[in-house]
Structure formats: C-alpha cells, structure tokens
Amino acid sequence: MPGMMLELERIDTFRGPAQILRGVSLAVQHGEAVCLVGRNGAGKTTTIDSIMGLLPVRAGKVAFQGRDITRLPAHQRALLGIGYAPEDAGIFPDLTVEENFQITSWLARPGGAGGAPAPAGNGYERIFSIFPEVREFLTRRGLHLSGGQKKMVAISRAIALSPSVLLLDEPFEGLAPVVVTRFIEAVKAIKALGISVLIAESNLVNATRVADRLYAIDRGEIIFRGQPNEVFQNEDVMKTIRG
C-alpha cells in the first residue's frame, strides 16, 4: 500500500504460555494518527510491544516503511525510526531529564523524521516547541518527576530520536482533564511535524479527539476499524469497549 508507515499482518503474540494477540492486522499511513482502543487487558500494550520488538511475534508480519522487521531486535527498530513511550513512561530514575533526552538524541538518525532534515543543535528545540514546560525541569532526576511530567519526558525523549512513527501507550492515563487536552494538542503538534502516531488508549472519547482512524481491540482480536465517528454508531463495539 503506498504511503504505508507501519503495517501488522495477522500477528499472533504470546506472553508466556498465554496467547494474547490473535491475527491482529492494522496499518498506519504517513502522517496519520491512529488510535487502538480497548479495555484493560484487551491486547493494546501487547500490540505496541510486538511492534517495538519487546515481545516476539509467533506468526504474522510486522512491516515498517515496507520493510519486514518481524525478526529485528528492539534497538534496531528504534534506530530505523520507531519511537516509543510506554504506559509507565519508562523514565530512567537516576538520570536527569536531559540525560534521558541525550540517549535518544545521540542515537537519532541523520535523516530525521520522514526524511526531514536532522534537528539542529542538540535537537531539543523541537521538544520545547511541543512541551515548553520540559525546559524548566531539564536538570531534575527522573525519580523526582510527577506522573504528568514523566509522560511529557517520555514522549519528548521519543521525539529526540527523530522517529518516523511514534508509539504511545496510554499517554493520557492518570492525567487531569485539562492536562489531557494539553497532551492532545501536543499529539497534534507531533503529527504536524510529519511524524505518524499510533496511540493505545482505553478512553474512547480521548481517542476520537485525536485519531484520524480508529481500531478497536478485544480479547486480542481487532473488532472494529474505521473513522472515529463511525464507532459510536456500532452498538456491539461500544458495548464491548465500555464494558
């Protein structure tokens, strides 16, 4: 498919002996924001981990910009241009915020996102354009950040890698409504930079505020794919997602 950034073809993933994903297929196009919606335990994080290479895919295929990356280790996927901000933010607690950014900015590809020029200087200007607040706690250790700050740093750190696609696992979870709005604006700004975004989200309303397209997942299977406004008309899917 032309313009395809990321594509999953019928992937099966296990955690230990338990099969979590069953034939999951989804696609993210260039410059698109896609949401994967589902209840807790539906398979959203497992899908993100499978794309990132943190969990092995038993069957099916993961392709990035047309290249089969199913068997690539996680670090090579990151270096190809897949950014990742996990649910728990994954901030290194003893490193300062700046050191957290340094890791990805040192490893960033020269080409930058979507073939755009590499960010000038230390690359932080792009981060500050999305989250100017980060400037204030650059020297603070990860251990001393609030939950919202950790999520900000996690997304900023992923951007410092100059990714082509960004995987955000529950980026709005645990945030106050006003902060959620701030994060949704940030996701839109990231998209405007030419970075595709795949968001795993359990709150359908938040998902529809940011997504160009939407997938719903339940018990490891995709049960809906389409435009955000279409999902509200599908009673079965609504019932499943909302429990």
Partner: peptide, 8 residues
C-alpha cells in the same frame, strides 16, 4: 528493556 526500545 526501555534502553533497548530507545535504540541502545
């Protein structure tokens, strides 16, 4: 795990 997912 996180370091690996960041390209290390």
């Amino acid at each position: 795990r996180m370091a690996s997912a960041l390209g290390v």
